[in-house]
Design a protein around this nucleic acid. Structure first.
Length: 505
RNA sequence: GGCCCGCUAGCUCAAUGGCAGAGCAACUGACUCUUAAUCAGUAGGUUCUCGGUUCGACCCCGAGGCGGGUCACCA
Protein backbone atom coordinates (compact mmCIF):
# COMPACT_ATOMS: atom_id res chain seq x y z
CA UNK A 1 0.00 0.00 0.00
CA UNK A 2 1.40 3.30 -1.12
CA UNK A 3 1.63 5.86 1.58
CA UNK A 4 1.08 9.48 0.89
CA UNK A 5 4.62 10.64 0.30
CA UNK A 6 5.20 7.78 -2.13
CA UNK A 7 2.16 8.90 -4.11
CA UNK A 8 3.50 12.42 -4.35
CA UNK A 9 6.78 11.11 -5.64
CA UNK A 10 5.08 8.75 -8.07
CA UNK A 11 3.16 11.67 -9.54
CA UNK A 12 6.41 13.49 -10.17
CA UNK A 13 8.08 10.40 -11.58
CA UNK A 14 5.22 10.03 -14.06
CA UNK A 15 5.64 13.64 -15.15
CA UNK A 16 9.36 13.13 -15.47
CA UNK A 17 8.75 10.11 -17.70
CA UNK A 18 6.33 12.10 -19.87
CA UNK A 19 8.85 14.92 -20.26
CA UNK A 20 11.42 12.41 -21.41
CA UNK A 21 8.89 10.74 -23.72
CA UNK A 22 8.39 14.13 -25.35
CA UNK A 23 12.07 14.21 -26.19
CA UNK A 24 13.03 16.75 -23.53
CA UNK A 25 15.95 16.38 -21.12
CA UNK A 26 14.68 17.18 -17.63
CA UNK A 27 18.25 17.61 -16.37
CA UNK A 28 20.17 19.46 -19.09
CA UNK A 29 23.84 20.14 -18.52
CA UNK A 30 23.50 23.88 -18.99
CA UNK A 31 21.09 26.70 -19.50
CA UNK A 32 22.13 30.23 -20.34
CA UNK A 33 20.23 33.04 -18.66
CA UNK A 34 20.67 36.66 -19.69
CA UNK A 35 20.10 38.06 -16.21
CA UNK A 36 19.13 37.04 -12.74
CA UNK A 37 15.58 38.00 -11.82
CA UNK A 38 16.47 41.13 -9.86
CA UNK A 39 18.69 42.51 -12.64
CA UNK A 40 16.03 41.79 -15.26
CA UNK A 41 13.42 43.61 -13.21
CA UNK A 42 15.55 46.68 -12.60
CA UNK A 43 16.73 46.84 -16.24
CA UNK A 44 13.13 46.70 -17.38
CA UNK A 45 12.12 49.46 -15.01
CA UNK A 46 15.01 51.58 -16.20
CA UNK A 47 13.99 51.20 -19.86
CA UNK A 48 10.43 51.94 -18.96
CA UNK A 49 11.40 55.24 -17.36
CA UNK A 50 13.67 56.36 -20.17
CA UNK A 51 11.31 55.49 -22.99
CA UNK A 52 7.75 54.79 -21.93
CA UNK A 53 6.71 54.11 -25.53
CA UNK A 54 8.96 51.09 -25.88
CA UNK A 55 8.97 49.69 -22.43
CA UNK A 56 9.79 46.16 -23.47
CA UNK A 57 12.92 44.28 -22.60
CA UNK A 58 12.69 41.76 -25.40
CA UNK A 59 13.82 38.21 -25.87
CA UNK A 60 15.59 37.59 -22.61
CA UNK A 61 16.11 34.27 -20.86
CA UNK A 62 15.55 33.91 -17.13
CA UNK A 63 15.62 30.92 -14.84
CA UNK A 64 14.54 29.96 -11.38
CA UNK A 65 12.70 27.55 -9.16
CA UNK A 66 8.93 27.45 -9.47
CA UNK A 67 7.45 28.48 -6.11
CA UNK A 68 3.87 29.03 -7.15
CA UNK A 69 1.56 28.08 -10.05
CA UNK A 70 -1.69 29.88 -10.77
CA UNK A 71 -3.24 27.91 -13.58
CA UNK A 72 -6.14 29.33 -15.63
CA UNK A 73 -6.55 26.72 -18.28
CA UNK A 74 -5.03 28.24 -21.39
CA UNK A 75 -2.80 30.60 -19.41
CA UNK A 76 -0.92 30.38 -16.16
CA UNK A 77 1.23 32.53 -13.90
CA UNK A 78 4.29 31.03 -12.26
CA UNK A 79 6.62 32.53 -9.70
CA UNK A 80 10.28 31.86 -10.38
CA UNK A 81 12.68 32.24 -7.46
CA UNK A 82 16.42 32.66 -7.69
CA UNK A 83 19.02 33.96 -5.26
CA UNK A 84 18.25 37.56 -6.19
CA UNK A 85 14.50 37.34 -5.72
CA UNK A 86 11.33 36.32 -7.52
CA UNK A 87 9.92 37.12 -10.94
CA UNK A 88 6.56 36.18 -12.37
CA UNK A 89 6.27 34.29 -15.63
CA UNK A 90 3.16 34.32 -17.81
CA UNK A 91 2.57 31.18 -19.86
CA UNK A 92 0.02 31.53 -22.66
CA UNK A 93 -1.07 28.93 -25.13
CA UNK A 94 -1.13 31.61 -27.85
CA UNK A 95 2.59 32.22 -27.43
CA UNK A 96 3.86 28.79 -26.53
CA UNK A 97 1.73 26.72 -28.93
CA UNK A 98 2.54 23.04 -28.34
CA UNK A 99 5.13 24.00 -25.75
CA UNK A 100 2.24 24.98 -23.50
CA UNK A 101 1.54 21.30 -22.88
CA UNK A 102 4.61 21.19 -20.66
CA UNK A 103 2.64 23.10 -18.04
CA UNK A 104 0.76 20.00 -16.92
CA UNK A 105 4.06 18.26 -16.19
CA UNK A 106 5.45 21.11 -14.08
CA UNK A 107 5.46 21.04 -10.30
CA UNK A 108 6.16 23.59 -7.63
CA UNK A 109 9.85 23.12 -6.97
CA UNK A 110 10.93 22.50 -10.56
CA UNK A 111 13.73 24.56 -12.01
CA UNK A 112 12.50 26.25 -15.16
CA UNK A 113 14.21 28.35 -17.82
CA UNK A 114 12.04 30.86 -19.69
CA UNK A 115 12.71 32.82 -22.87
CA UNK A 116 10.37 35.73 -23.52
CA UNK A 117 9.69 39.46 -23.32
CA UNK A 118 9.40 41.42 -20.13
CA UNK A 119 6.04 43.11 -19.77
CA UNK A 120 3.97 44.69 -17.09
CA UNK A 121 0.68 42.96 -16.33
CA UNK A 122 -2.61 44.77 -15.86
CA UNK A 123 -2.02 44.67 -12.16
CA UNK A 124 1.37 46.33 -12.70
CA UNK A 125 3.69 43.42 -12.02
CA UNK A 126 6.86 42.97 -14.03
CA UNK A 127 6.48 39.60 -15.74
CA UNK A 128 8.22 37.54 -18.37
CA UNK A 129 5.81 36.67 -21.14
CA UNK A 130 7.06 33.23 -22.11
CA UNK A 131 7.85 32.23 -25.69
CA UNK A 132 9.79 29.10 -24.82
CA UNK A 133 10.15 26.89 -21.73
CA UNK A 134 13.03 24.66 -20.66
CA UNK A 135 12.93 22.33 -17.69
CA UNK A 136 16.36 22.75 -16.11
CA UNK A 137 15.84 20.32 -13.21
CA UNK A 138 12.79 18.33 -12.22
CA UNK A 139 11.89 18.11 -8.54
CA UNK A 140 11.00 14.69 -7.12
CA UNK A 141 9.82 15.64 -3.65
CA UNK A 142 7.18 18.12 -2.52
CA UNK A 143 8.43 21.43 -1.16
CA UNK A 144 7.33 22.82 2.20
CA UNK A 145 4.23 24.92 2.03
CA UNK A 146 4.55 28.49 0.81
CA UNK A 147 2.19 30.32 3.11
CA UNK A 148 3.64 29.35 6.48
CA UNK A 149 7.12 28.40 5.31
CA UNK A 150 9.05 25.68 7.07
CA UNK A 151 8.69 26.04 10.83
CA UNK A 152 9.99 22.80 12.28
CA UNK A 153 13.38 23.78 13.66
CA UNK A 154 14.76 20.28 13.48
CA UNK A 155 14.04 20.03 9.76
CA UNK A 156 15.33 23.57 9.24
CA UNK A 157 18.71 22.59 10.72
CA UNK A 158 18.96 19.08 9.32
CA UNK A 159 17.83 20.03 5.83
CA UNK A 160 19.04 23.60 5.65
CA UNK A 161 18.45 23.69 1.89
CA UNK A 162 14.71 23.42 2.55
CA UNK A 163 14.96 26.24 5.06
CA UNK A 164 16.77 28.34 2.47
CA UNK A 165 14.15 27.61 -0.18
CA UNK A 166 11.10 28.03 2.02
CA UNK A 167 12.33 30.87 4.24
CA UNK A 168 14.69 32.54 1.79
CA UNK A 169 13.89 36.11 2.80
CA UNK A 170 14.64 35.50 6.48
CA UNK A 171 17.43 32.94 6.32
CA UNK A 172 19.61 33.91 3.38
CA UNK A 173 20.40 37.42 4.65
CA UNK A 174 21.86 36.00 7.86
CA UNK A 175 24.41 33.96 5.96
CA UNK A 176 25.14 36.74 3.54
CA UNK A 177 25.83 38.91 6.57
CA UNK A 178 28.06 36.24 8.02
CA UNK A 179 30.11 36.19 4.85
CA UNK A 180 30.39 39.98 4.93
CA UNK A 181 31.58 39.88 8.53
CA UNK A 182 34.39 37.49 7.67
CA UNK A 183 35.31 39.54 4.62
CA UNK A 184 35.25 42.70 6.73
CA UNK A 185 37.59 41.19 9.30
CA UNK A 186 40.02 40.16 6.58
CA UNK A 187 39.96 43.59 4.99
CA UNK A 188 40.39 45.30 8.37
CA UNK A 189 43.40 43.19 9.34
CA UNK A 190 44.95 43.10 5.88
CA UNK A 191 44.76 46.89 5.75
CA UNK A 192 46.73 47.02 8.99
CA UNK A 193 49.51 44.86 7.62
CA UNK A 194 48.45 41.54 9.11
CA UNK A 195 49.32 38.35 7.24
CA UNK A 196 46.68 35.64 7.04
CA UNK A 197 48.11 32.19 7.68
CA UNK A 198 46.95 28.59 8.03
CA UNK A 199 48.24 26.43 10.84
CA UNK A 200 47.61 22.73 11.55
CA UNK A 201 44.20 21.44 12.53
CA UNK A 202 45.54 17.97 13.30
CA UNK A 203 47.89 18.48 16.21
CA UNK A 204 49.89 16.24 18.57
CA UNK A 205 49.02 18.38 21.60
CA UNK A 206 45.65 20.13 21.97
CA UNK A 207 46.93 23.24 23.67
CA UNK A 208 46.13 26.93 23.81
CA UNK A 209 42.82 26.83 25.67
CA UNK A 210 40.97 25.00 28.42
CA UNK A 211 38.85 22.50 26.56
CA UNK A 212 38.39 18.82 25.85
CA UNK A 213 39.73 17.92 22.42
CA UNK A 214 38.44 15.47 19.84
CA UNK A 215 40.82 12.58 19.48
CA UNK A 216 41.77 10.96 16.20
CA UNK A 217 44.45 8.70 14.84
CA UNK A 218 46.84 8.84 11.92
CA UNK A 219 47.36 5.38 10.44
CA UNK A 220 50.67 5.78 8.64
CA UNK A 221 52.28 7.53 11.59
CA UNK A 222 50.43 5.23 13.97
CA UNK A 223 50.01 8.24 16.18
CA UNK A 224 47.24 9.72 18.21
CA UNK A 225 46.32 13.21 17.06
CA UNK A 226 43.83 15.81 18.23
CA UNK A 227 41.69 18.34 16.46
CA UNK A 228 42.93 21.74 17.52
CA UNK A 229 41.10 23.66 20.24
CA UNK A 230 42.90 26.93 19.45
CA UNK A 231 45.43 28.34 17.01
CA UNK A 232 47.35 30.30 19.63
CA UNK A 233 50.58 28.36 20.04
CA UNK A 234 51.24 27.98 16.33
CA UNK A 235 50.60 31.65 15.66
CA UNK A 236 53.04 32.59 18.40
CA UNK A 237 55.65 30.35 16.79
CA UNK A 238 55.23 32.54 13.71
CA UNK A 239 55.78 35.71 15.75
CA UNK A 240 58.95 34.04 17.08
CA UNK A 241 59.88 33.25 13.48
CA UNK A 242 59.73 36.92 12.61
CA UNK A 243 56.31 37.69 11.19
CA UNK A 244 55.17 40.85 12.98
CA UNK A 245 51.45 40.57 12.50
CA UNK A 246 49.62 37.34 11.76
CA UNK A 247 46.06 36.13 11.97
CA UNK A 248 44.08 33.01 11.24
CA UNK A 249 40.36 32.58 10.75
CA UNK A 250 39.77 28.91 11.25
CA UNK A 251 37.64 26.17 12.61
CA UNK A 252 38.45 24.90 16.07
CA UNK A 253 36.89 21.91 17.80
CA UNK A 254 35.91 21.49 21.43
CA UNK A 255 34.43 18.28 22.71
CA UNK A 256 31.84 19.88 24.93
CA UNK A 257 28.16 20.50 25.35
CA UNK A 258 25.90 22.06 22.76
CA UNK A 259 23.61 24.95 23.56
CA UNK A 260 22.51 28.34 22.29
CA UNK A 261 26.03 29.67 22.10
CA UNK A 262 28.17 26.54 21.80
CA UNK A 263 28.68 24.29 18.80
CA UNK A 264 31.37 21.58 18.86
CA UNK A 265 33.11 23.20 15.93
CA UNK A 266 33.20 26.95 15.55
CA UNK A 267 35.10 29.61 13.71
CA UNK A 268 37.73 31.46 15.64
CA UNK A 269 39.73 34.51 14.70
CA UNK A 270 43.08 34.79 16.41
CA UNK A 271 45.57 37.57 15.75
CA UNK A 272 49.03 38.31 17.15
CA UNK A 273 50.86 41.59 16.81
CA UNK A 274 54.46 42.08 17.86
CA UNK A 275 55.17 45.15 19.97
CA UNK A 276 51.52 45.57 20.86
CA UNK A 277 49.99 44.97 24.28
CA UNK A 278 46.45 44.37 25.43
CA UNK A 279 45.71 48.09 25.45
CA UNK A 280 46.53 48.29 21.76
CA UNK A 281 44.43 45.22 21.10
CA UNK A 282 41.49 46.76 22.94
CA UNK A 283 41.54 49.74 20.63
CA UNK A 284 41.82 47.47 17.63
CA UNK A 285 38.84 45.39 18.74
CA UNK A 286 36.50 48.36 19.18
CA UNK A 287 37.61 49.74 15.83
CA UNK A 288 37.22 46.41 14.10
CA UNK A 289 33.83 45.50 15.50
CA UNK A 290 32.31 48.96 15.05
CA UNK A 291 33.68 49.17 11.50
CA UNK A 292 32.20 45.81 10.63
CA UNK A 293 28.88 46.67 12.26
CA UNK A 294 28.65 49.68 9.95
CA UNK A 295 29.76 47.52 6.99
CA UNK A 296 27.02 45.00 7.44
CA UNK A 297 24.20 46.96 9.06
CA UNK A 298 24.97 50.56 8.16
CA UNK A 299 25.05 51.44 11.84
CA UNK A 300 27.04 50.77 14.98
CA UNK A 301 23.76 49.81 16.64
CA UNK A 302 22.24 46.36 16.52
CA UNK A 303 18.94 45.08 17.87
CA UNK A 304 18.90 41.68 19.53
CA UNK A 305 16.53 40.05 22.00
CA UNK A 306 14.69 43.33 22.57
CA UNK A 307 17.89 45.22 23.38
CA UNK A 308 19.75 47.83 21.39
CA UNK A 309 23.50 47.44 21.53
CA UNK A 310 25.83 50.19 20.35
CA UNK A 311 29.31 49.16 19.26
CA UNK A 312 30.54 52.72 18.74
CA UNK A 313 33.90 53.18 20.47
CA UNK A 314 35.08 53.70 23.08
CA UNK A 315 33.67 50.74 24.95
CA UNK A 316 33.44 50.77 28.70
CA UNK A 317 36.50 49.42 30.50
CA UNK A 318 36.06 47.84 33.92
CA UNK A 319 38.36 45.79 36.10
CA UNK A 320 37.37 42.23 36.84
CA UNK A 321 38.04 42.62 40.53
CA UNK A 322 35.98 45.82 40.88
CA UNK A 323 33.17 44.61 38.67
CA UNK A 324 32.89 41.36 40.59
CA UNK A 325 32.83 43.25 43.86
CA UNK A 326 30.16 45.59 42.52
CA UNK A 327 27.80 42.82 41.41
CA UNK A 328 28.48 40.14 44.01
CA UNK A 329 30.05 41.98 46.92
CA UNK A 330 33.04 39.66 46.76
CA UNK A 331 36.49 41.19 46.83
CA UNK A 332 38.81 38.50 45.54
CA UNK A 333 41.68 39.86 47.61
CA UNK A 334 39.83 39.17 50.86
CA UNK A 335 39.37 35.47 50.26
CA UNK A 336 41.85 32.66 50.05
CA UNK A 337 40.92 29.61 47.96
CA UNK A 338 38.92 27.79 50.62
CA UNK A 339 37.15 30.92 51.82
CA UNK A 340 36.25 31.83 48.26
CA UNK A 341 34.83 28.38 47.65
CA UNK A 342 32.73 28.64 50.79
CA UNK A 343 31.55 32.14 49.91
CA UNK A 344 30.65 31.07 46.38
CA UNK A 345 28.70 28.14 47.76
CA UNK A 346 26.78 30.48 50.07
CA UNK A 347 25.91 32.62 47.08
CA UNK A 348 24.31 29.74 45.23
CA UNK A 349 27.22 28.59 43.10
CA UNK A 350 27.40 24.84 42.72
CA UNK A 351 30.65 23.86 44.44
CA UNK A 352 29.97 20.15 44.72
CA UNK A 353 32.74 19.38 42.25
CA UNK A 354 36.01 20.51 43.73
CA UNK A 355 37.29 23.34 41.61
CA UNK A 356 40.35 25.51 41.28
CA UNK A 357 40.33 29.17 42.19
CA UNK A 358 40.48 30.13 38.53
CA UNK A 359 37.41 28.08 37.73
CA UNK A 360 35.58 29.55 40.70
CA UNK A 361 36.39 33.09 39.64
CA UNK A 362 35.21 32.23 36.16
CA UNK A 363 31.92 30.95 37.55
CA UNK A 364 31.43 34.01 39.71
CA UNK A 365 32.11 36.15 36.69
CA UNK A 366 29.60 34.38 34.49
CA UNK A 367 26.96 34.25 37.21
CA UNK A 368 27.17 37.75 38.66
CA UNK A 369 28.88 39.94 36.11
CA UNK A 370 28.29 38.71 32.57
CA UNK A 371 24.50 39.09 32.59
CA UNK A 372 24.99 42.82 33.29
CA UNK A 373 27.33 43.35 30.38
CA UNK A 374 24.79 44.20 27.72
CA UNK A 375 26.58 47.12 26.10
CA UNK A 376 30.07 46.30 24.79
CA UNK A 377 32.43 46.19 27.74
CA UNK A 378 36.04 45.26 28.31
CA UNK A 379 36.67 43.39 31.54
CA UNK A 380 40.32 43.81 32.50
CA UNK A 381 42.98 42.04 34.51
CA UNK A 382 42.30 38.42 35.28
CA UNK A 383 43.73 36.19 37.99
CA UNK A 384 46.89 34.50 36.82
CA UNK A 385 45.83 30.93 37.47
CA UNK A 386 43.04 31.11 34.90
CA UNK A 387 45.29 32.62 32.23
CA UNK A 388 48.47 30.57 31.81
CA UNK A 389 49.52 32.22 28.56
CA UNK A 390 49.17 35.84 29.68
CA UNK A 391 51.83 38.14 31.03
CA UNK A 392 51.79 39.28 34.65
CA UNK A 393 50.43 42.75 35.30
CA UNK A 394 53.16 44.92 36.78
CA UNK A 395 52.37 46.03 40.31
CA UNK A 396 49.47 43.61 40.69
CA UNK A 397 50.77 40.28 41.95
CA UNK A 398 48.60 37.34 40.91
CA UNK A 399 46.99 39.22 38.05
CA UNK A 400 47.72 39.23 34.32
CA UNK A 401 47.22 41.69 31.52
CA UNK A 402 44.16 40.13 30.00
CA UNK A 403 40.78 41.38 28.87
CA UNK A 404 37.62 39.81 27.67
CA UNK A 405 35.03 41.77 25.71
CA UNK A 406 31.36 41.17 26.41
CA UNK A 407 28.14 42.26 24.74
CA UNK A 408 24.56 41.05 25.20
CA UNK A 409 25.85 39.16 28.24
CA UNK A 410 28.06 37.02 26.03
CA UNK A 411 31.81 36.83 25.66
CA UNK A 412 32.93 37.92 22.22
CA UNK A 413 36.67 38.48 22.56
CA UNK A 414 39.61 37.38 24.68
CA UNK A 415 43.04 38.97 24.65
CA UNK A 416 46.27 39.29 26.54
CA UNK A 417 49.67 40.79 26.58
CA UNK A 418 51.34 37.51 25.71
CA UNK A 419 53.65 35.84 28.16
CA UNK A 420 57.08 35.64 26.52
CA UNK A 421 59.36 34.53 29.36
CA UNK A 422 60.06 30.85 28.56
CA UNK A 423 60.88 29.97 32.15
CA UNK A 424 57.69 31.52 33.51
CA UNK A 425 55.72 29.92 30.70
CA UNK A 426 57.03 26.51 31.72
CA UNK A 427 56.08 27.17 35.33
CA UNK A 428 52.60 28.20 34.29
CA UNK A 429 52.14 24.97 32.35
CA UNK A 430 53.34 23.06 35.38
CA UNK A 431 50.84 24.94 37.55
CA UNK A 432 48.16 23.86 35.09
CA UNK A 433 49.28 20.26 35.37
CA UNK A 434 49.08 20.60 39.13
CA UNK A 435 45.55 21.97 38.88
CA UNK A 436 44.70 19.02 36.69
CA UNK A 437 46.15 16.68 39.33
CA UNK A 438 44.27 18.32 42.20
CA UNK A 439 40.97 18.84 40.46
CA UNK A 440 40.71 15.90 38.19
CA UNK A 441 37.53 16.89 36.43
CA UNK A 442 39.03 20.07 35.17
CA UNK A 443 40.21 20.91 31.69
CA UNK A 444 43.44 22.81 31.74
CA UNK A 445 45.84 24.09 29.18
CA UNK A 446 48.28 21.36 28.18
CA UNK A 447 52.00 21.65 28.08
CA UNK A 448 53.45 21.80 24.60
CA UNK A 449 57.19 21.08 24.73
CA UNK A 450 57.79 22.12 21.16
CA UNK A 451 56.15 25.44 21.89
CA UNK A 452 58.33 25.93 24.96
CA UNK A 453 61.40 25.25 22.86
CA UNK A 454 60.22 27.87 20.37
CA UNK A 455 59.65 30.34 23.17
CA UNK A 456 63.25 29.90 24.28
CA UNK A 457 64.31 31.40 20.95
CA UNK A 458 62.67 34.64 22.03
CA UNK A 459 59.26 36.11 21.27
CA UNK A 460 59.00 39.90 21.20
CA UNK A 461 56.36 41.57 23.36
CA UNK A 462 53.09 40.66 21.65
CA UNK A 463 49.41 41.44 21.90
CA UNK A 464 47.14 38.51 21.10
CA UNK A 465 43.43 38.27 20.39
CA UNK A 466 40.71 35.68 19.96
CA UNK A 467 37.21 36.41 18.67
CA UNK A 468 34.45 33.85 18.23
CA UNK A 469 33.15 34.68 14.78
CA UNK A 470 29.89 32.83 15.26
CA UNK A 471 29.04 34.84 18.35
CA UNK A 472 29.98 38.09 16.69
CA UNK A 473 27.68 37.16 13.81
CA UNK A 474 24.91 36.33 16.29
CA UNK A 475 25.14 39.85 17.66
CA UNK A 476 25.39 41.57 14.31
CA UNK A 477 22.57 39.51 12.83
CA UNK A 478 20.34 39.78 15.90
CA UNK A 479 20.17 35.99 16.26
CA UNK A 480 20.07 34.74 19.86
CA UNK A 481 20.98 31.14 18.92
CA UNK A 482 24.28 30.05 17.42
CA UNK A 483 22.41 27.42 15.40
CA UNK A 484 20.85 30.18 13.36
CA UNK A 485 24.22 31.51 12.22
CA UNK A 486 25.63 28.07 11.40
CA UNK A 487 24.47 26.63 8.08
CA UNK A 488 24.73 23.10 9.43
CA UNK A 489 24.70 23.06 13.24
CA UNK A 490 25.78 19.83 14.88
CA UNK A 491 22.87 17.42 15.33
CA UNK A 492 22.58 13.96 16.73
CA UNK A 493 22.55 11.30 14.02
CA UNK A 494 19.04 10.10 13.43
CA UNK A 495 18.71 6.41 14.13
CA UNK A 496 17.47 4.13 11.42
CA UNK A 497 14.61 1.68 11.95
CA UNK A 498 16.78 -0.96 13.57
CA UNK A 499 17.04 -0.87 17.33
CA UNK A 500 20.80 -0.81 17.25
CA UNK A 501 22.02 -0.82 20.79
CA UNK A 502 24.52 1.94 21.36
CA UNK A 503 24.57 1.91 25.10
CA UNK A 504 27.25 4.00 26.65
CA UNK A 505 28.13 4.76 30.18
C1' G B 1 23.30 14.43 32.80
C1' G B 2 18.59 16.77 35.80
C1' C B 3 13.95 19.31 34.99
C1' C B 4 10.12 21.45 31.59
C1' C B 5 7.84 21.52 26.67
C1' G B 6 7.02 19.46 21.79
C1' C B 7 6.49 15.27 18.03
C1' U B 8 -0.85 14.07 14.33
C1' A B 9 -1.31 13.83 6.12
C1' G B 10 4.43 16.26 2.02
C1' C B 11 4.03 21.42 4.86
C1' U B 12 1.31 24.57 8.73
C1' C B 13 -1.95 23.28 12.48
C1' A B 14 -6.90 21.19 15.03
C1' A B 15 -9.28 17.14 17.65
C1' U B 16 -13.74 16.11 26.70
C1' G B 17 -10.89 8.80 27.01
C1' G B 18 -15.94 7.56 22.23
C1' C B 19 -15.88 7.39 13.82
C1' A B 20 -8.60 11.54 13.40
C1' G B 21 -10.05 16.88 10.86
C1' A B 22 -8.90 21.74 8.22
C1' G B 23 -5.88 24.99 5.01
C1' C B 24 -1.94 24.67 1.57
C1' A B 25 0.42 20.91 -1.60
C1' A B 26 -1.33 16.43 -4.70
C1' C B 27 -5.01 14.10 -8.27
C1' U B 28 -9.60 14.80 -11.96
C1' G B 29 -12.41 18.61 -14.43
C1' A B 30 -13.66 24.12 -15.75
C1' C B 31 -11.27 28.77 -16.63
C1' U B 32 -6.19 33.36 -21.47
C1' C B 33 -3.97 39.13 -16.45
C1' U B 34 -3.42 35.80 -11.76
C1' U B 35 -0.64 36.78 -7.35
C1' A B 36 -3.21 33.15 -0.40
C1' A B 37 -6.21 32.89 -8.07
C1' U B 38 -11.29 31.03 -8.23
C1' C B 39 -15.06 27.03 -8.82
C1' A B 40 -16.66 21.56 -8.69
C1' G B 41 -14.99 16.85 -7.30
C1' U B 42 -11.24 12.85 -5.51
C1' A B 43 -7.58 10.65 -2.77
C1' G B 44 -4.20 10.69 1.17
C1' G B 45 -2.82 8.64 8.52
C1' U B 46 2.43 3.16 11.91
C1' U B 47 -1.13 10.21 15.64
C1' C B 48 7.67 9.33 16.94
C1' U B 49 8.56 3.90 18.89
C1' C B 50 7.58 -0.12 22.33
C1' G B 51 4.72 -1.69 26.38
C1' G B 52 0.65 -0.93 29.98
C1' U B 53 -4.34 0.78 31.99
C1' U B 54 -9.33 0.73 29.74
C1' C B 55 -15.24 -2.02 26.80
C1' G B 56 -12.57 1.79 24.05
C1' A B 57 -6.18 5.66 23.96
C1' C B 58 -3.68 11.11 19.60
C1' C B 59 -5.47 11.92 24.72
C1' C B 60 -3.97 8.47 30.92
C1' C B 61 0.64 5.56 32.88
C1' G B 62 5.84 3.43 32.05
C1' A B 63 10.28 2.93 29.08
C1' G B 64 12.86 4.69 24.89
C1' G B 65 14.02 8.08 20.38
C1' C B 66 14.61 12.99 18.25
C1' G B 67 14.19 18.26 18.84
C1' G B 68 13.62 22.92 21.68
C1' G B 69 14.15 25.48 26.41
C1' U B 70 16.47 25.62 31.19
C1' C B 71 20.05 24.21 34.97
C1' A B 72 24.69 21.73 35.35
C1' C B 73 29.07 21.09 32.34
C1' C B 74 31.64 24.19 29.06
C1' A B 75 34.09 29.67 26.30
Amino acid sequence: MADREDTLRENRAAKLARIRANGLDPYPARFHRSYDTATATSLFEELEQNDPAHEKLQNVTLAGRITSIRDMGKAAFLDLQDASGVIQALLRQNNLKDGFDLLKDLDIGDHLGVRGDLIRTRTGQVTIDAMELTVTAKVMRPLPEKRHGLKDVETRYRQRYLDLIANQDEVMPVFVLRSKVVRGIRRFLDDRGFLEVDTPILVPVAAGAHAKPFVTHHNALDQQLYLRIATELYLKRLIIGGFDKVYEIGRVFRNEGIDQDHNPEFTLLESYEAYADYNDVMEMVEQMVSTIAVDVNGSTEVRIGGQVIDFAPPWQRVSLREELQKHSGIDLESFDDDALRQKAGEMGIDTKVLESRGRLVDKLLSTFVEPHLIQPTFVLDYPEDMSPLAKAKPGAPGYVERFEAFAFGMEIANSYSELNDPKVQRERFEDQAEIQRLYENEDVDRQDEDFLTAMEYGMPPTGGLGIGIDRLVMLLAGQPSIRDVLLFPQMRIQQGGSAEENSEE
